[in-house]
Write a protein that binds this DNA or RNA. Structure first.
Lengths: 357, 357
DNA sequence: TTTCAACACGAAAACGTTTTCGCTAAGAAT
DNA sequence: ATTCTTAGCGAAAACGTTTTCGTGTTGAAA
């Protein structure tokens, strides 16, 4: 039950001043070898470690990164966190996690909780509700207060900051081209509503791939699922919707789905309808998660490299933090900075498994 | 690029003292209505928010909980985090996350990084390597420094602290009993090596269920998988091992697996061997994750209620924190405290799906 | 003997709060 | 006219650091 020991206590115990203790512990040559030895021994004995909070206050930086994501029980997001934590730790930072739960208000509350000194910068992915409202003032507000933000995956042009995104467009193009080259003639797209930029880009990629092969996209082959409600708990609805979709379009021989849940559900429905995979119908999903890997047949996917995204984001943020630390007094107007912001695009990769030929 | 405004700046701007500003903002009646109004208006205009770090230093508490888990890309653990974050947020706390990556050293490093003032208490689950080494001094050390710990899932008797665990034993009993009642005559167990207590308990539950039905456990029907190496990247090995197991025990008509990966792999192998599920062979897995839900056939599982575990753990920890805050100067010896520690057992629940009759 | 550098250390400020205590002035009570 | 309240505010300490700037002592150089 003994509290952690402080400089002051060591000083009192050894009958020297606080400054002396501090200097001795940092091996300052101002202090004689004798006292240094004595102090260091004592400190080691009592397992002295400087108090982080005091350091944060003094240095006006916390060595902590705030992560703000919509959801944590989610393969992609947790992979990104792992990447962030990896480089953060390596570079001496901690990570503090906030969940917006896809809610605009929770996003704001979380940001305000953290922006008051608790962290040095944010890495975040925007909540669906925020994307719907298109209200980004809280991001710009915290940036204006001198706190850097790095956005990933769900980003938005209205905010000037570093961004790390998946090449959704080209990922889709690659996937759909693969289906075309595998001789699929009627390729369906199962996607979400458009307000999440990510979904929109993937849809565009689908169309682009078709057009590059002189195929005009058939609107009937595009199924837009309303994911505003909790899909995980309405699995049957999803299944029914896809089944209906398959039935009214009997000639589908290829499916590109914008996430793995839609993809495996499509496979399930296909099999139920007596289609065999990949012989009668081939399936590719975006997002390479556990489902894809362990489904039967295993699913060919477009991998997003979540961990790499996290690593990049963390490096970007920390780079900016140390830069701000060194330039320090130099003054930039916002306009000068603007051009500085980096948008890193992480290339996707097709992981071939059993659901394609 | 304007830094956040401080009390001092407000004071200077309004030509009053810092104390006056502080009091006015907390509506102290020491300050006249006039000045209070003036100060509050000014503060609101400049969006003043007290600096958390300064508060932490002054109050000697950070209102932050440290979470230390072996892995984050993992359905169970991320579910627990969600539960922790939920109640933490509701009760005014933040969460800071550290990953041990199943490594003893990283666990220690992370603890030391956080234990120096950054957090008020820990919620953690022990890494495999630590369990192997059975070296728990770092836990006891931080507890002795006055920092409370709540352990969940992977806990250990050698450390005196609050614990939240899954009823692994009874969960297994329930599962295996269900298989027995479903007329399985030769029930196999697919489990891990024993050093993770969780695995051991589940094995014991399996045996207990059999014995309660006067069946003597057949050692040949128990497959222990060495998960010390990264299973996710050696899927084929796992598959082969299980296939071999099935072949040498041709009469298996029920499988209980201690995690969902083993369970779905078992289903895969079973189907490959021409067995139909659940007619020829029924399968139940521990851990209710995405795989179970979306496998075909979907998997009957023992749900651990990860979110509930997280919520309980957070409540336990925060309760103890506020208690420590109020009792404050009262002094307890470790022995007196010992009896105080709570072990909460979260009951499991069988979620019936298609892999059982 | 005087001067000077080097050495070894301490005092104090600063980071941003909250809170206790003290002080002044004005009005009330004596 | 003197004392007492009370309202309204400021000074200062404290939380635990680091760092700058003294300051006193010592031995050597002059």
């Amino acid at each position: 039950m003994k509290r952690k020991i402080t400089l002051k206590q060591i000083a009192r115990e050894l009958d020297v001043s606080i400054s002396t203790v501090s200097k001795a512990l940092s091996n300052s040559k101002e202090i004689s070898e004798d006292t240094t030895q004595k102090i260091q021994a004592f400190a080691k004995l009592y397992n002295y470690k400087p108090n982080n909070i005091a350091l944060s206050l003094k240095n006006r930086k916390t060595k902590t990164i705030g992560i703000l994501i919509p959801e944590i029980v989610h393969h992609f997001f947790s992979t990104v966190i792992r990447g962030i934590e990896l480089v953060a730790n390596r570079r001496g930072y901690n990570v503090i996690v906030g969940l917006s739960n896809e809610s605009f208000t929770k996003e704001i509350i979380n940001m305000e909780m953290l922006a008051n000194g608790s962290i040095d910068g944010f890495i975040l992915s925007i909540s669906k509700e925020t994307l719907l409202k298109q209200d980004y003032h809280h991001f710009n507000a915290t940036i204006n207060q001198g706190m850097p933000i790095v956005m990933f995956d769900r980003v938005v042009n209205e905010v000037d900051c570093d961004k790390v995104i998946v090449d959704d467009f080209n990922g889709s193009v690659k996937a759909v081209k693969k289906l075309i080259e595998n001789n699929c003639k009627n390729i369906a797209l199962i996607t979400t509503m458009d307000y999440v930029s990510v979904g929109r880009l993937r849809t565009q990629g689908y169309i682009e791939a078709l057009e590059s092969h002189k195929i005009i996209a058939n609107p009937n082959l595009i199924l837009k699922i309303d994911d505003s409600l909790d899909v995980e708990n309405h699995l049957e609805d999803l299944e029914l919707e896809i089944e209906q979709f398959f039935k009214t379009n009997g000639n589908i021989d290829g499916v590109f789905a914008v996430n793995e849940l839609y993809a495996v559900t499509a496979m399930k429905v296909a099999r139920k309808l007596g289609l065999s995979i990949p012989d009668n119908i081939q399936v590719i999903g975006f997002t390479d998660g556990v489902l894809s890997k362990h489904a039967t047949p295993s699913l060919t996917t477009v991998s997003q490299h979540g961990q790499k995204i996290g690593e990049q984001a963390a490096n970007l943020l920390i780079d900016r933090l140390v830069a701000a630390d060194t330039e320090d007094d130099q003054y930039f107007t916002n306009d000068e900075r603007k051009s500085d912001f980096i948008k890193v695009v992480i290339e996707t990769e097709i992981i071939e498994r059993e659901s394609t030929k």
